[in-house]
């Protein structure tokens, strides 16, 4: 049976069992490898994508349960036309190994959609599910503040 998904504005028909997590549909079937596998148990946030405007761990959402359009890091912006938050990540030189950053950015983007002026406490609360083994946290915090300021300028 085929499942129809709208990802980054494009419709994909996927022929897979309905219990396959969205993460693996994105990575291994559709070839959107920007979303990362880190733990498979919603403990690291590397696989974070948006379903509608909500940040979700795509390793925990079964293909059959996807309830709205999906946005991945590739749909947020491209190297040529980065989203404000991605530009803030670049400006603050956040990434080290970079593996967790897709998930960090998707989580932060959802935070800013909900709250365009997050305090440090708001950031702590929203971002603590996203693990970074390189320890880029200080720059992640700075980048969220940068993006917040930029979004208010517009």
């Amino acid at each position: 049976m085929s499942t129809s998904l709208k990802i980054n504005g494009k419709t994909h028909d996927v022929d897979l069992p309905e219990d396959v997590p969205l993460l693996w549909v994105l990575r291994d079937e559709i070839g959107l490898t920007g979303t990362k596998y880190g733990c498979g148990v919603a403990a690291c946030g590397a696989c974070t994508v948006h379903i509608g405007e909500t940040a979700v761990r795509s390793c925990q959402v079964a293909l059959g349960d996807v309830w709205d359009d999906v946005t991945t890091i590739e749909g947020l912006g491209t190297p040529e036309t980065m989203a404000v938050i991605q530009a803030a990540w670049v400006e603050n030189q956040v990434a080290q190994c970079g593996y967790c950053q897709s998930g960090q950015i998707m989580q932060a983007a959802a935070l800013l959609t909900e709250n365009d002026s997050p305090s440090d406490e708001d950031i702590d609360l929203a971002m603590q599910g996203n693990l970074c083994r390189c320890g880029t946290y200080p720059r992640i915090r700075a980048a969220i503040h940068t993006a917040s300021a930029k979004m208010k300028e517009v």
Partner: peptide
């Protein structure tokens, strides 16, 4: 500016696990 920072901020950097 790090030469890898745009790729790593846009999901386009290729890690081993992204080999297709």
């Amino acid at each position: 500016p790090r030469i890898d920072v745009v790729g790593k901020s846009t999901g386009t950097a290729q890690f081993g696990i992204d080999t297709r």
